[in-house]
Amino acid sequence: MLTLTCPCCGIRAEETELHPGGEAHLVRIGPEGDDAAFESYLFARRNVKGVHFERWRHAYGCGKWFLAARCTATLQVFGTYSAQTTHPPAEIVDAIRAARPDWTPDWTSDWTTP
C-alpha cells in the first residue's frame, strides 16, 4: 500500500486516504476533435513499466487533486506536484533522472509546453 505526500497540504497520506485518478497530463479533446484524437483521449492509456505520471486525490484529506511521478516496477516515488501543470516540473524531471539516468522525457507533440 503506497504512501504519497500531498503537495497541497504536505500530509504523507497512505493509499486508503487517497483516490486514484489514472494517467496524468491527458489533454482534453472537445467537440472539435476528430475521432482518432478523441478515441485516444478517452481510451488510450500508457501501460508503462517504469516511470509513470498519475493523478491522485487526497480524498480523505484536503480534497485536492495532485500528480505523482513514480516507478510502476519498484514503486519508487520521484515526487508529487500540482495538478495544474501540463507536464512534470523541472524538479520532478531532475529527481527522475537522478534515479533513472536512462529515462528521457517524452512530452513532445501531444503534450503542450507552457
Partner: peptide, 13 residues
C-alpha cells in the same frame, strides 16, 4: 462533488 472538484482543479484551474 468529486467530479466537480476534479474538473475545477485539474482542467479549469
Amino acid at each position: 462533488h468529486g467530479h466537480m472538484e476534479d474538473w475545477l482543479q485539474c482542467e479549469w484551474g
